[in-house]
């Protein structure tokens, strides 16, 4: 998964974490963390979000991969069909040739 950024300076990519606290319940979004890849993201999520034994199942998803449609959250530039979770500059693929974005 490439973000096109200088990893040393920009840091590891952002992942959203979902935890199912108990069998029978659905996964719930609990927050985000930075990790270099999925394997580390899962392990970090276990350490950060399930320290007190909460969590039967953990999902991690690159934040940039999540498509959102939240019509209730009104934003003049919001694309109603599909958009990103946050207005985060690194989530958007920079078009070829666009330099100072």
């Amino acid at each position: 998964m490439t973000e096109g950024h200088d990893s040393g300076k920009r840091g590891w990519p952002l992942w959203e974490v979902f935890v199912r606290p108990r069998r029978g319940l659905a996964h719930q979004h609990v927050g985000s963390l930075h990790a270099p890849d999925a394997a580390m993201a899962l392990r970090n999520a276990r350490d950060v979000y399930t320290r007190r034994g909460e969590g039967v199942s953990i999902w991690v998803v690159p934040s940039s991969a999540i498509m959102a449609n939240s019509p209730d959250e009104k934003d003049p530039f919001f694309d109603p069909a599909q958009d990103k979770v946050y207005r985060h500059p690194t989530f958007y693929d920079v078009p070829e040739g666009a330099k100072q974005l």
Partner: peptide, 8 residues
């Protein structure tokens, strides 16, 4: 970070 800024 949800406000559109990076941890770095």
């Amino acid at each position: 970070e949800t406000l559109g800024i990076d941890r770095e």
